[in-house]
Design a protein around this nucleic acid. Structure first.
Lengths: 367, 367
DNA sequence: TAATTTTGATAAAGCGCAATATCAAATGGG
DNA sequence: CCCATTTGATATTGCGCTTTATCAAAATTA
């Protein structure tokens, strides 16, 4: 039954031109209203509905005190007391806003932002490197993502070891793009490259082409494997054996006149090209041979251009639903968070959208 | 002289396949390392340099424990305890990743990210709306930016009241773009629209044009005012009075054939157009009159295109140094933060880069 | 009137960390 | 060998809030 006097001392520091007032706290409000601190919290959060009751009079006094002091709850203290911080992390191994891939990444971010807004989360972009050379999740063994309630990962370069460790640790995260790890499954949202590729290859075959070539870079990660699988499916199902459906690994600078001439001489009429930059190179080299698409040969591109400069208008290609992927990833992450861990890793595959374009036509000399 | 046993109970819940550990705290680390909690904090923050000393051995044990548990300091608790959290906020009143302005915003973000990485800060993008209709800084009186040590603000729509309040409160922030408030000054990093506009107008005049028209939208914020000021400076300095240097406020749909014909009849030979979208509209309407730039008339654009679709190749224009602005804003904010409030608001003005292009030529019938 | 319920409030613990005051043991000087 | 100093650690407080346990007084019931 002790009397406690809550001292009120809103000290004001003068720093040059900027007044740095100590912000009033619940204690200040409580003191002014002549009540105990807890009750202020109760009123502010409308927790008066449950079995906690506060008289109208007290309520009014507290509200008046709040107004008089200009009291504003400290969000930091709030989230500390509350447990979560409603922060979703976003992590990439490369730049979050890359110049070279600007067109590609931006769409994901649009989707992520939209859905984060809907789910009422803030976004924490991990840009700190803390002295390390490249970005890593584990900084001298420390999982830096823990700063957020959960995280969205995306990007090309991926450290599988870190992913596996993250998974093991039970940290809630979702990858944008298919990523597989040893001894387990992670949650991801991916585009159905395999099916999209199969469709676009079948489209090409249906145009009359009987001799195709797949041109891929040297990188052999999940997306590339999926595209290859789709290519193989489509060609095999349509009775094209391996000699009629070649596979080539070529970097841009390896797409030479000699090489292309060789393929033309072999009778290849259609090229399935992994990326726009390779397609541009292919078209340029073909032009040196006096050949132009779709009259003299055909080509289709497996997926979107990575930046603005390389866009080929009206290319035959398919679009990855990147906005939707970003949004889905956030949604999935939120489900995982609300489930509080009682959930198996889940994979979401979204369809791509075929775009006919005009770089695939009928073969000039049908087989 | 009491013995306190710090209990270690990193409870591990088994939820289906995923183990959800409670995030380790300093207490957990301390227990594992066999030291008191405070010492962990001391080590983490490198406070060992002052008069506080910790033996190598203990230090190593603590670091090992941190690594083993995957401990990461809770930023919320940190900032509550008075420290900082190495979080820079990024706030816009509209979408952070807008579709319509994708090209424009992205550059700022590139600069922000790069510099944040250099300064070793993470980025907190404020996307929560907490039930409100549009984004606001003060959510029922709460300054939601307080979650971060400081913030970068950008974007078109700006609530001056909120800016003023933020400033008054002493919250550290930097605006990207010039923004003025009543009774005070805020820190910002802006492009020198006034000078750039003056230069481009003088360039046009030097080509021989003696009768110009400035075409702006109805929005009258700082950037628009700066451009107008530059236009007026240039024309006045070159002896063009108001009837020779008209000013028109026209939305896109108000740029009609009749209106344009009237200007042509008056003898206007060059248009200074505020934005790319208006320039496109202008060129299209002029084409209906059989006139084309730069042969029949000239036009210059005041600043960058807002999105990819509207780009006019080879337009006479100037480029805003958006990457540099983003980076500078972060740098300025960091200075403010390290100064700890004992600093006056500071304004940084960066020059734009003139691009000659080919939409401004000599007038067809010189005055 | 005494026992019970309802009403309206208080006291206190805890969130995770930083910072400071305190303290015991080891070391060194005279 | 005793006292002062240095070294290396501990105990404690407070940041501002939420939440729960507790409690006194008023209202209701038996």
């Amino acid at each position: 039954m002790g009397f406690i006097i809550y001292a009120l001392s809103l000290s004001i520091f003068i720093y040059g031109a900027v007044r740095m007032k100590r912000r009033p706290t619940q204690l200040d409000v409580a003191t002014l209203a002549g009540v105990s601190p807890g009750i202020v919290s109760t009123i502010i959060n409308n927790r008066t509905n449950g079995n906690i009751r506060i008289s109208e009079a007290t309520q009014q006094r507290v509200l008046d005190a709040i107004k008089e002091l200009g009291y504003v709850p400290n969000p930091v203290a709030r989230s500390l007391a509350g447990g979560q911080n409603r922060l979703l992390g976003v992590f990439t191994y490369e730049a979050l806003f890359p110049l070279e891939y600007r067109n590609f990444y931006y769409e994901f971010l649009i989707g992520i932002e939209k859905e984060a807004e809907i789910q009422d989360y803030n976004l924490l972009f991990f840009t700190r490197r803390q002295g390390t050379q490249k970005r890593v999740i584990y900084q001298n063994g420390v999982n830096s993502l823990q700063l957020a309630d959960g995280a969205i990962l995306l990007g090309l370069g991926t450290d599988r070891e870190e992913l596996a460790r993250l998974n093991n640790e039970g940290y809630p995260f979702v990858f944008i793009g298919r990523r597989e790890i040893k001894n387990g499954q992670i949650s991801y949202v991916a585009a159905d490259y395999k099916r999209a590729t199969r469709e676009i290859v079948e489209y090409t075959i249906n145009k009359g082409h009987r001799r195709l070539a797949l041109v891929q870079g040297s990188l052999r990660a999940e997306p590339q494997l999926d595209k290859q699988a789709g290519y193989c499916d489509a060609t095999a199902l349509n009775g094209l054996n391996e000699s009629l459906a070649e596979i080539h690994y070529k970097e841009n600078d390896q797409i030479t006149v000699e090489w292309l001439k060789m393929l033309f001489d072999k009778g290849v009429t259609a090229f399935i090209v992994e990326s726009t930059s390779e397609a541009k190179r292919l078209a340029a080299v073909a032009a040196q041979l006096g050949k132009h698409a779709p009259a003299d040969f055909s080509y289709a591109i497996l997926g979107d251009p990575m930046n603005l400069e390389e866009i080929i208008p009206d290319a035959t290609t398919y679009r990855t639903p990147r906005q939707e992927m970003g949004a889905q990833a956030v949604r999935l992450l939120c489900e995982i968070l609300t489930a509080g861990g009682e959930i198996e890793p889940r994979q979401v595959i979204l369809p791509c959208h075929f775009q006919p374009g005009n770089t695939v036509g009928a073969p000039s000399h049908p087989a």
